[in-house]
Amino acid sequence: MKTINKFTMTMESCSANEYFARAAVAAFVTQLDPTLEELNDIKTAVSEAVTNCIVHAYKNSIGKIYITVEIFPDNLIKIKIRDKGCGIPDVEKAMEPLYTTVGGERAGLGFAVMQSFTDHISVRSVIGKGTTVTLNKKLELRVKCNA
């Protein structure tokens, strides 16, 4: 499939960047004229993936987070969020709703949010090497109104 547009950024895993990451992705996606709900879905899913890099992948350290957003024909958006952190031992288990390795203030719903707010999610992870989360979302093609 042909890429129409692409955006890449790298940032440190500081929690202050959670806001920046979702805002930057939303700003890039705005060129497709998404609905407010679609834009919020994307922001929420990105926020989950980026927060996981900060909270889990680089638990007690600071590392790099790599974000790529690609736009394909028919308003298909592919968002890749990658870290070189600790990795996930059992991805299937990690994706179960309410599963969390950090008790207390975490609900264990990050993957559930990503799953239901996008059309497709794939997670690749290697222990000690890192994790890549890929989120696909197809925006509704809206009927142009000339009135």
């Binding site: 979702r22 919020n40 922001k43 929420t44 926020s47 989950e48 927060t51 207390g104 203030e105 975490r106 609900a107 719903l109 990050g110 559930a112 949010v113």
Partner: peptide
């Protein structure tokens, strides 16, 4: 104006 699953953690906690 925006909330992710951290907000769920806040409410549940």
């Amino acid at each position: 104006s925006f909330m992710d699953s951290s907000g769920i953690g806040l409410v549940m906690g």
